[in-house]
Amino acid sequence: MKNSVLNKLLSLLLLLPLLLTGCSLSLFPGYRTCSTAPASAPESWFASDSGHYLFNTGIDIYKKHFSGLMVVKAMESDHYRVVFLTEIGIKLFDMEFSADSAAKVHYMMEAMNKKALINTLSRDISLVLMNTKTEEIPDCLRQRKSDDVVFLYRDRGIKNYYHIQSPSDNPYMARQTGCITNKVKAWLYGNSASGLDSVLIRHDNIRLSLNLYRIKE
């Protein structure tokens, strides 16, 4: 009996440093501070002058699969409108994203109208849009293994990391961490000549993934 209590106490003591620092694994993502910061932060692939993007999109949520077309439109003043439709034209959701406020849901089909799902999808899409607060200056980091430049934005306990390979690039990878663990990663494929080609989003802790393949109209 005593041994059991002691073991529990010992376990708690071992966890104490993590609890005291408030966060854990995501504190040690293998980055170091930039010695010289790049002149400017990376730009979103969805810049305001990029018209609209149309993606062939699959969303897998546990055992459910949704497929359709996702429209991403950069509006004025760092606003984005994101509409997800079936191939046949039925609207699944219509959301508006701005840097300084929560996503506004214009329409959400009943089958997807769950608060947790909406919040998660909103965070995922915001991560890919790079919909950060306009006045926020990111921290500059360098990845230890690859020497990539990584920009870190913080927002109410959430950290968004954007990886770039050279200063003029758009991010090729984005990662969001919460307090304890990694939450989600997004890979953004494309090049400066033709723009964004595809986006893959994967969650670490829940069975949710999004695959977006751009349709050239």
Partner: peptide, 12 residues
Amino acid sequence: MLMFTNRIHIIL
């Protein structure tokens, strides 16, 4: 393809 459960969704 959508996986709906209620009738309204089916019809839609």
